[in-house]
Design a protein around this nucleic acid. Structure first.
Lengths: 231, 231
DNA sequence: CCGAGAAAAATGATCGATCATTTTTCACTG
DNA sequence: CAGTGAAAAATGATCGATCATTTTTCTCGG
């Protein structure tokens, strides 16, 4: 018998990669924090190799900083980098959105509406503890933003936006960890969605840019914390 | 005494990473080729770990494809992906150039002129063997293209362009390996440079886009070869 | 007490052995 | 002879020991 969708049991390295990634993006591993390999392999009760492999992937991705013979640390953050990143997001998403609106068919429209709906519905925080953010929210949030550019016609473009989104996600989570968060991004998402399906290109871009900029503004007020920790 | 610029001896993993990367980008490792870890560690006379670490970095970068429990292979290529990639390059470079021209000062202009000059001067192939491309050329070529966007004001943007450039570089080298190469990109670079320092924004973008598209066109004619090998 | 330099400790990098999974081989059945 | 499934081989993943480098601690002369 042929096993059509051969189940791929992930390797230890891959599992650890995902866990570490979550911890970095989620902000529980602070910028600049030393990533001691023996400690980590202890935490995940594995050998050294899988941890190293995971760290190598993360360093290629830019989430972890690697210095030969000096190991790994969580990539530091800074206000200039946040500004830099936000600028890049505005620019790249602008093209993605512009092209998507031009090329997007009904299916695209529906995907945007659907992901926006899900985002509106999903609770921002866990039902039992109002201070812990709902991890599913992050997924749905990203889905929405990615849906906007999904019809642009280039996967390289989509990957690029994804990468930028993740980097920004880390800043957002750091800010939240320091007690700063948006008033209600829900309405903004709604507005963006409406403008997108109405094909009001310039409006979408304007809304999206200020959406990005406003987040960056908020985050800036607290990133200093991360920098202090980044010894 | 304080050692100001503490010389960092690269680890084996880092060296192997660079070598593998060159072989993939340079086209000596064909798309889809199996990357056997024992063989590689033999080739580089090292243990298994450094090779694995190098491969993990390359897989995070997208140059190598990793499947859990099935090892690594060189990332396959395809005509659709080349088109996709070229599109992304046109879009992203357009913004980079536009912003650079707007913000670039004299220093930027000089950097563009300088790198273009170097590109004009450096021999395309090795002096002793006219069929072997000069590895320095690739460096200088990339420098030129990166210089065009270097004043855009966002390192994330510059990194993105760099990533896209490298991906395209692999396609170029594969085409060359199959005997296809540009008539004379030298003149095109010259034209682009002139237009850039003259701040003829729209012209630069037009030239750059057709520069990218023309290369992609050529490459397409032979990429099929790579796909056949990618078994 | 300060700082230079040696010794010790900690940590990172590498190795080869071993375990797990996948792929290939091959004998057998129908 | 094709197809099945068990064994064998090949290959990938992981482990812990060991080696190399960096960081910390300690000692001592000034």
């Amino acid at each position: 018998m042929v096993n059509a969708a051969l189940e791929q049991r992930p390797t230890r390295a891959s599992s650890i990669y995902l866990l570490l990634r979550d911890d970095i993006l989620g902000g529980s591993l602070l910028p600049g924090a030393k990533l001691n390999i023996r400690d980590l392999s202890n935490t995940y009760s594995s050998g050294l190799s899988p941890v190293r492999e995971a760290l190598n992937r993360l360093s290629a991705e830019g989430l972890v900083l690697q210095e030969d013979n000096r190991g790994f640390k969580v990539q530091p953050v800074s206000v200039p980098e946040l500004i830099d990143l936000t600028q890049a997001r505005c620019w790249v998403n602008e093209i993605g959105v512009r092209e998507s609106i031009e090329k997007g068919d009904t299916e695209w429209e529906e995907a945007v509406i659907l992901s926006c709906h899900r985002l509106k519905r999903i609770p921002r925080f866990l039902p039992d503890d109002e201070t812990v953010p709902n991890p599913k929210w992050a997924v749905v949030h990203k889905d929405f933003h990615q849906s906007l550019i999904s019809a642009c016609g280039s996967n390289w473009m989509i990957d690029t936006c994804s990468r930028l989104f993740d980097a920004a996600e880390r800043y957002r989570n750091l800010a939240r960890g320091a007690g700063v968060s948006r008033s209600d991004p829900r309405d903004e998402h709604q507005e963006i969605m409406s403008a997108a399906v109405d094909r009001k290109t310039d409006l979408v871009i304007e809304l999206l840019n200020s959406h990005f900029q406003r987040t960056a503004q908020l985050v800036q007020t607290v990133v200093v914390v991360g920098e202090e920790d980044a010894v």
